[in-house]
Design a protein around this nucleic acid. Structure first.
Lengths: 369, 369
DNA sequence: CTGAAAGCGCTAACAG
DNA sequence: CTGTTAGCGCTTTCAG
């Protein structure tokens, strides 16, 4: 921002008071405690203020004095420009904004670009004038998160990371929900399943996931969802090691498409591809169609989240209450921090939605191809 | 936010300085001008700070001193919770965040709920600690806008309102783009056209738009788009008065559906429905299908914006560069305010996209029904 | 209902 | 490289 244009805050509380030959307190009261002065004096003050172009007490000065910023800092998974393209993240923000709007708190989105080093990350976060933070689905080793923790302000986490003792958490049962989806597929006769997931670490590592990569995972949500599939397989007597997992860094439909292609190239026997998000599933679906694969005839595809477009497309998925997660997260932040020792964990319910992208796997169809 | 939890900012610049028996300036320099002190002293300071849980200079105090907030205020068309559901608005924010992220400025979304009176609106805006404002597509009589103007900070407007002398504007040629779309339809043989637009005023007034309502319009963009259609009609020798315009307050697919139904009920002779946004068009499309109307066989439908889903659905529409609009808006704000007297107006190019929702209107088909 | 006093925590000259 | 001196603009006791 240009530093120009504010050569001299044309008017201040003091200058208004001076012009009226009254004390600053009185002018302050005109804005903050209308009941502390006569209505007519207040009128008079407001009029002078308007004439002088004074828009009320300076927010920064007031914040310094009251120790209240009037905004909550929001740390999202990705750089802002990417986040705004993520429907699930936007639903979360929508819910969060409801809580905050009601409390008159603004949302200060932290400009968390990926190309900032640790020190710069700390600076951005340490410099945010906020009363508290909301952290939405970031990896456990996120440098911005570390900086947020240092601020020692009220904090609520949504989804991940887990295990921050001082912060309440709002999330869902990722493992259970994904298990349910896998059981649905297994019930349809699928036993050769593939998984297409989002990045498992902060580094770009598109490709087939090996054990080491899986274990080193910093993204609790992705990890749990994959575990859910493995559990279902194990329960059904299928070797979880047969599971092909492909990872994509970018969370876009394009990567969903290329990821799907890679998964089926890595294991052509796959009859069902489970995507850990709807965005990826939508991309996978597009790829399958363009590749001439019938869905669900030749390939079943599942998503996760329940974003609008996936529902309209009839994708079999899990709906999670994103807006409600946002609302609850906000509510917990507005509430006084729990002094009950351990922070609460709120697990919201999810819903399995069977659409038209999953169907029975007919053994014979393999040979029929 | 709970005012608790900050009983005493555990440490301050001064207290750190005291502990080390050095001056506050030096500690300040350790954070702001690392080159102004020896590396080892800096190390020492940072170490003590870390031990005392000091996360660096207090943002509010610093802002007061430097007269810089490190954030830009964003005023959107709707309440935040609605805005987050508007894909076009999100694309704009995505672009804007790129500019801001690069400049290290955060985005402070103003909690602009519709159920706040003028005074409350002013308070929210006057209390925002920002270095400037971005106003995205708000009506000319928006109370929050009035409050923004009073702040007398750098300001850039996107889309609407037009005519704020002090603010640069970024937008498109709404009228021309819509005229192009209408000409396309007329070229296909349509002469009975309907328009489904977003709200034309701050009050809810769902229904058929009469002249008075149209004239009183506070939403420049909607107004221009409708004018574009009228121009095309006039040029083609069709009486613009034959144009049925239906208005919807909420910008949702549901309202697109009900609006489409109402338009066709109001004038059953309509063969082409022009929606002023893709979201409405998507809803109209869904309605048409559910009503058993063939698109474009029996009804042509157009949208506006070029949001992802509309493109994937093959909607005939106008693509406008939302992200670029955001980027330019941010860039103009970061740049020093133009002292060139009149503020600039940047008109970005749009692109007509012919999809599969528009087709020739076969005269005979009317009788064939 | 109004005023005087006392900082909130920090940075920006300017000297040393 | 370090310290001293002055506030930034406001709110908040506490007396009148």
């Amino acid at each position: 921002m240009p530093r120009s244009r504010q050569p001299r805050p044309q008017a201040t509380l003091a200058s208004i008071a001076a012009e009226l030959k009254i004390s600053r307190t009185t002018v302050s009261n005109a804005y903050n405690r209308p009941d502390q002065l006569s209505a007519e004096l207040r009128e008079q003050i407001l009029e002078v203020a308007k004439r002088r172009g004074y828009a009320g007490p300076d927010p920064m000065a007031r914040s310094l004095r009251t120790r209240r910023a009037g905004a909550v800092g929001v740390l999202l998974t990705e750089a802002l420009s990417y986040s705004f393209r993520d429907p699930a993240a936007m639903s979360f923000l929508s819910g969060l904004s409801e809580s905050c709007e009601a409390a008159g708190e603004g949302l200060l989105l932290i400009p968390a670009g990926p190309d900032r080093d640790e020190e710069e990350a700390a600076q951005v976060v340490h410099g945010a004038a906020v009363d508290g933070f909301v952290v939405y689905s970031v990896p456990s080793d996120d440098p911005y998160l570390a900086a947020v923790l240092e601020r020692n302000l009220p904090l609520v986490v949504c989804d991940q990371p887990r295990g921050i003792a001082s912060a309440p958490l709002v999330g869902i049962d990722d493992r259970g929900a994904m298990r349910g989806l896998a059981e649905h597929l297994i019930g349809l006769g699928h036993h050769r399943i593939g998984v297409l997931c989002m990045r498992l670490g902060r580094d770009r590592r598109d490709g087939v996931v090996d054990t080491a990569r899986f274990e080193s995972d910093r993204f609790h949500v992705q990890h749990e969802r994959i575990l859910g599939v493995q559990e279902a397989l194990r329960t059904a007597g299928i070797d979880p090691a047969s599971l092909t997992v492909v990872e994509r860094y970018a969370h876009t439909a394009e990567d969903g498409a290329s990821g799907a292609a890679q998964a089926l190239a890595a294991d052509p026997a796959i009859t069902a591809l489970m995507c850990t998000t709807d965005v990826l599933a939508l991309g996978a679906l597009a790829w399958a169609r363009s590749a001439g694969l019938e869905v669900p005839g030749q390939l079943s595809i599942t998503g996760f989240d329940g974003i609008g477009e996936a529902l309209r497309e009839g994708v079999t998925t899990v709906r999670q209450p994103q807006e409600e997660k946002g609302r609850r997260t906000g509510a917990l932040l507005m509430a006084a921090p729990s002094h009950s020792g351990v922070a609460t964990v709120e697990t919201l319910p999810t819903e399995l939605l069977i659409g038209q992208t999953t169907g029975v796997h007919d053994e014979t169809s393999i040979y029929a191809e």
